[in-house]
């Protein structure tokens, strides 16, 4: 799905989290929002997911105005920074949640739900953990379960807030490849937030560098490396 962000701004009281930003994300792209802490990455992602509403500007999905769509109507697969798995449910029930929450008319049969959850567990290469609780998983496993849960609703896009933030370097590398594979397999437009420039450069088709609520540069990783548009980008990439 093609995502278009038109002059979106966001005020929290007197702080401007986003000064008007515009961005066009082609269908099927894997995009990194890269920037230092407080630059507005999470805010932009939450606005796309419908968890936050912009103070001004419009969001378009495939050319259609989506600014006023509710969070449920957006059908965005959202992976939270701390994963936000439902702690009182098993991994199976976590992944099945989006399917069982559907209105009765469009809700799949129990057997069909079980089949899809099993398939997703295989996709994240954790076929045997359906019966466990989130507290019984490692950080990397939790992250993959969160991804499977988001994929279960057959989302129109994937939004991930620092998906690898809380993990050690080795696991990060593995999961990076895992995300790339899942993106290539599903073809979903995917946006992930990171403040790790290696991660952004290595994984993304398109990198959006942000600072202080503004977009500093949009480009392919190689272009940003070769031709930083502003002093900020040069310094941030150089670091």
């Amino acid at each position: 799905m093609h995502i278009q962000i038109d002059e979106i701004s966001k005020q929290f009281g007197t702080t401007a989290a986003l000064t008007p930003v515009s961005l066009s994300i082609p269908s099927g792209a894997l995009v990194a929002l890269l920037g230092p802490s407080g630059s507005g990455k999470t805010t932009l992602l939450r606005i796309l997911g419908g968890l936050e509403f912009p103070s001004s500007g419009r969001v378009r999905f495939d050319g259609q105005d989506a600014t006023n769509l509710t969070v449920q109507q957006r059908r965005a697969g959202f992976v939270f920074q701390s994963y936000a798995l439902f702690r009182h449910m098993t991994v199976f029930d976590n992944i099945a949640y989006g399917l069982t929450a559907r209105p009765r008319a469009s809700r799949p049969q129990k057997a069909e739900i079980a089949r899809r959850v099993t398939k997703l567990l295989e996709l994240i290469q954790l076929p045997d953990i359906g019966g466990r609780f989130p507290s019984q998983l490692s950080g990397g496993q939790r992250q993959r379960v969160a991804l499977a849960r988001a994929l279960a609703i057959e989302p129109r896009m994937l939004l991930l807030d620092e998906p690898f933030g809380a993990l050690d370097a080795k696991v990060r590398k593995e999961l990076r490849q895992g995300l790339r594979d899942i993106h290539d397999e599903t073809g979903l437009t995917t946006i992930f937030v990171t403040h790790d420039q290696d991660e952004a450069m290595e994984l993304a088709d398109l990198v959006v560098v942000m600072s202080m609520g503004r977009i500093e540069q949009i480009g392919k990783p190689a272009d940003i490396r070769a031709r930083p548009a502003t002093a900020f980008v040069r310094e941030f990439i150089g670091a």
């Binding site: 969070v71 449920q72 957006r74 965005a76 959202f78 701390s82 936000a84 929450a101 849960r149 609703i153």
Partner: peptide, 16 residues
């Protein structure tokens, strides 16, 4: 609020 927000993004109503 994270778990509740997760439920909403998965399509659940506020009541559910």
């Amino acid at each position: 609020r994270a778990e509740e927000e997760a439920a909403l993004t998965l399509g659940a109503s506020g009541w559910r």
